[in-house]
Design a binder for these strands. Structure first.
Lengths: 220, 220
DNA sequence: GATTGTGAAAGCGTTCACAGCC
DNA sequence: GGCTGTGAACGCTTTCACAATC
């Protein structure tokens, strides 16, 4: 379920703030979703709530981590030491959340040997070595679009079985390889779409229906 | 519809390769989806296909751009000139696809004045000025998590109506502001989940039903 | 003959509503 | 009284299948 990581982050936050118990309604509020949905999602993990009380935050965090396979670190290898690759390697959000950068590779000899975020950049040809040495199963593609397919093939050949693709082009991989895609332009295009619709409806006086937003407190 | 940007990218690629006509089946193949879905999606834009022939790629690109509001550029302002902000600002994928970086702001005086991707970094306090000068309606948050809320508030106060949040924390914004979120860790967690399931099923020769604890005697 | 456009059917995720439990 | 867990209703999205059209 794609919402478990969201719950996990919220619950981790709550845990830090000293919250020990949480109801489905509170969690739903924090996550911006429906309480019934939260209960359905969590019941999928097992019956870990207590009726009349709620869920034990600490236990729930453990269970979600277990379900997501986050009981141990998943080192990743980054292909591409350009702007994006450097940002990802230096981004604490990766290592802090269980995905330490186990290697960075590139084909630009000018970049090879430099150190980013404590990791030395090596040549793409050595990616198989890196993957096997550090027992890596997740690769991150941070290359220009035209190099993405080559990067994907090198990763698969090296033994990686999951790929997160930041390049703005579609890669094709053998069956059985999991691919996640983050296309920055697509995200912006969706926002642009909403902006454009906002402009269109704002200039259309016929649509007078006011959304009946019956929330109690205004957003704080 | 969230798939339009995907079609747009494929069609743009095809256009560059000299393809002038495409059938729903070909487009579906390239996009990895069902042909009927493609037709339904495109029929939503209007009846722009020709039976027995297919769709005119050039015309379709124009229509999708129109629907998405991509007939003009949408300059963006980036909050945070750290690793991620620099990567985004230097990333051609933004400007090339209609989202030029109209400004970068930060609170670190050491960074202010430096030039990234041709744009000078200014102070967060000047964000309203930047937004109004360049007529910006989309802001990008590339700060550490703890600064994301402050960034969001500054953007909203400056007049931005859409926000793309790369920080690993949830921001709350007034009603009517559109927020897109890219959480790098969430993407990786989803891949980890699949990896973990792969390992689990690989080590389970046959899926034997595990007896659950049925409370009460209603076992049938 | 090939391909679109679209009603109808099927599938899936969400929400409701309430019994069961603390 | 409060809250979970879940069958059932609902609504939305996807897929099918075929008439309409080129």
């Amino acid at each position: 379920m794609a919402r478990l990581p969201v719950y996990l982050r919220i619950l981790s936050d709550q845990l830090e703030q000293g919250v020990t118990t949480i109801s489905s309604e509170e969690l739903a509020e924090l996550g911006g979703v429906n309480a019934a949905k939260v209960r359905k999602d969590l019941s999928y993990l097992g019956s870990y709530g207590t009726r009349g009380v709620g869920y034990d935050v600490d236990f729930l965090v453990y269970q979600i981590r277990r379900e997501l396979g986050l009981t141990h670190d998943w080192p990743v290898v980054i292909v591409g030491a350009g702007n994006l690759g450097q940002a990802l390697a230096g981004y604490n959000g990766f290592g802090d959340r269980g995905f330490p950068v186990g290697g960075i590779v590139d084909i630009d000899t000018a970049k090879i040997g430099s150190v980013i975020g404590g990791v030395r950049v090596r040549h793409l040809d050595e990616v198989a070595q890196v993957v096997q040495q550090r027992n890596i199963s997740i690769g991150v593609i941070a290359t220009p679009g035209h190099a993405a397919q080559e990067a994907a093939e090198a990763l698969v050949a090296a033994g990686v079985t999951s790929i997160l693709n930041f390049a703005p082009s579609v890669i094709s991989v053998p069956h059985g390889i999991h691919v996640g895609k983050v296309d920055l332009a697509v995200e912006l295009q969706i926002l642009a779409y909403h902006e454009q619709r906002r402009a269109a409806t704002a200039s259309t006086p016929s649509l007078r229906a006011v959304p009946g937003d019956r929330r109690r407190g205004a957003s704080a």
